[in-house]
Design a binder for these strands. Sequence first.
DNA 1: TGGCTTTGTTAAGTATTTCTTAACTAAAAT
DNA 2: ATTTTAGTTAAGAAATACTTAACAAAGCCA
Lengths: 290, 290
Amino acid sequence: MAEPLDIPLRQLEYLVAVADHPTWSSAATSLGVSASALSQGLADLERRLGVQLFDRQGRRRVLTDIADPVLQHARTVQALSHDLGQWAERVNTLKMGSIRIGMLDVGAVLHFPEVLRVFRSDYPEIGFHLTVAPSSELLAGLRRADFDLIVCVRPSEIPPAISATPLLQESLVIVRPPGTESRPASAWGPWVLFPEGSHTRSLIERSLREHGARPQVVAESHQPDVLAQMVSLGLGWAVLPLAQVPEHLDVEIGESIVTRDLVICQREGAPQHPGVEVLIERLRSVTDVG
Amino acid sequence: MAEPLDIPLRQLEYLVAVADHPTWSSAATSLGVSASALSQGLADLERRLGVQLFDRQGRRRVLTDIADPVLQHARTVQALSHDLGQWAERVNTLKMGSIRIGMLDVGAVLHFPEVLRVFRSDYPEIGFHLTVAPSSELLAGLRRADFDLIVCVRPSEIPPAISATPLLQESLVIVRPPGTESRPASAWGPWVLFPEGSHTRSLIERSLREHGARPQVVAESHQPDVLAQMVSLGLGWAVLPLAQVPEHLDVEIGESIVTRDLVICQREGAPQHPGVEVLIERLRSVTDVG
DNA sequence: TGGCTTTGTTAAGTATTTCTTAACTAAAAT
DNA sequence: ATTTTAGTTAAGAAATACTTAACAAAGCCA
């Protein structure tokens, strides 16, 4: 029988801080405590768990592989605490607080601009902050409680304590430089794609490989319009949502080779801003109609 | 900017304890602390959140409605902490620990007895404990970290920090006393059903109402075989999974009027016993085949 | 009504935990 | 070799959380 195992929240914060900072000293100052406190706290955490969380590399300390579940736990608990704090603040000030939304570019400019605009005018007293960024950044931010809600591409692995509900499917088409003819997949490319690490990028690469194309990449950008521009300049081929290829641009549209799912992600098990539910409802109603 | 809001884990434990005990004193003794400590701790919690968590009813104190999100948060964090403790214990003892499974009766005796038996013989070194209980109890237990994994009827509301993945569908048929003829729904019954509060019961009641039957209930039991027995004795009609009506029993089988989903539920965002994943895999493979 | 018990709070002191400062070790940098 | 940087250890100070004890007030039982 392991008794409760009471780990101070503070020590979990320490762990997250050292994971997010290059050095323990900087982590300590970012927390506003002495390096000594940090050291002692983490030593104590290690002792309590009885698991080796840190290795030495020279005089630097790094997290062991086995520490990862603990780090995940720490992040989860920290995000939950943050949400509770927000909830409390909302409840006792009776002000509506604010909600922070993260969206993929297509979400903000293509699918849901009207929803966002109407929501703001319907609930002007709710503070509102929209961040547009790539899916991976959004997910990390959601996990850190930087956002209350995000719309992103469905990740292959959903992070712990995050829920994802489907919103819509997008198909991505091949975009070729002007004057290019259809040809066998082995002669496709070279490519201008989303950057390495982007989730859509890996979807595209997998699909290209399945079609027998060698994905030789000559340029990268997170911005679809930039990619389309490069294609029209003859720099290479792209794979983009059709709606994100500017109409006036001189390019050839090819076949659709990938579909990606846009999803709504939230933190699970946390008290929510009531406005978030309303917004989700509205986002989903858009895709029911379309 | 609300800064971190550091709430001691202990105070969350206090909150859960008073929610689960009739009186604060009994909660205090169950925690092994003085009533004074509990009182001070909860007063401090209330002060920190700035939200009124307790009302007075005579000399008794009761949770306010608004306290519920805090209670949910507390339960979530407590379950996560427990899981971390289990994980740590597994890691440093290198023993496989044990996994605690909860299942609905049909799961344990009808759909998955073979999976459970083979799993035990494949992994004899993993401690194994199976509890058979109604869905609502299983869900509450899962939330309290009494179980690592449960198989139950899909609840209408999934509790916070719990994930549910579908496993199979069961259809429930009307079971009539011997010699009863088919008749209009308004003349159905009276009924012997699962107890009030059971999730399957509410599914059944809803369906009966939709069919135009008045659900007059004359007997209740959690045990399907008991219900079937009562039907054969002419006490009333039942609605049961066909497979749970003993074959030798003298009853009439009617139409299927309800389907219920069996799901696997787990706590989200917690370090897991590796055996749990294996077991889930096997449970799902059974239903793929069947 | 008047005691008596039970429930919960408050006060004061004690114990525990967690911080800070300061002295120290060891790896990198100059 | 000297200095700088990263992290640890030691000792005392500060903050937290607990205990006991005294208290208030609601329910109980004549």
